[in-house]
């Protein structure tokens, strides 16, 4: 199992995390399209960390199980938290000046998406993409 943690404090960290994620996805045998999706997911959650929590970290790891291979992205911050998660996951909802497509896009395009958040404590997001997966939600 390979695991990389990148501290997110500035924009160049997002680029670094995205590049690492793409490389791992490539190594695991993900198609170019799925690599783009992995980069999308890392970029969206890392941008959110920077924008809403100012700092946090992103961990990327490979998941090698008996019958499947995948990539997991975990984002963690101890920022303000999300007041209404259901709302934050709706297309077009943004408390910033964004388009509000980040989180719903990632949820839709990746295979698994878990989010937990506590106001005043922070936010944790876990996302998975499986190789040759045919899941859709």
């Amino acid at each position: 199992m390979k695991q990389i943690t990148i501290q997110i404090r500035r924009e160049s960290d997002i680029i670094l995390a995205s590049q690492r994620g793409r490389k791992l996805a490539d190594t695991l045998g993900f198609s170019n399209n799925d690599q783009v999706l992995v980069v999308l997911a890392i970029s969206e959650i890392a941008h959110n960390i920077l924008r809403y929590a100012t700092k946090g970290e992103v961990t990327i790891l490979s998941l090698v199980e008996a019958d499947k291979t995948g990539l997991e992205i975990m984002a963690w911050d101890s920022g303000p938290g999300i007041h209404n998660i259901g709302q934050a996951l709706q297309d077009g909802y943004s408390t910033g000046d964004g388009l509000g497509i980040g989180l719903p896009g990632v949820k839709r395009l990746m295979d698994e998406f878990e989010i937990s958040s506590a106001v005043g404590k922070g936010t944790t997001i876990v996302i998975r993409k499986w190789l040759h997966s045919s899941f859709q939600n």
Binding site: S18, V36, V39, L40, H47, L99
Partner: peptide
């Protein structure tokens, strides 16, 4: 460009 995210869309 080989990435795509909401930042790029904006």
């Amino acid at each position: 460009v080989d990435i795509c995210d909401s930042f790029f869309g904006r």
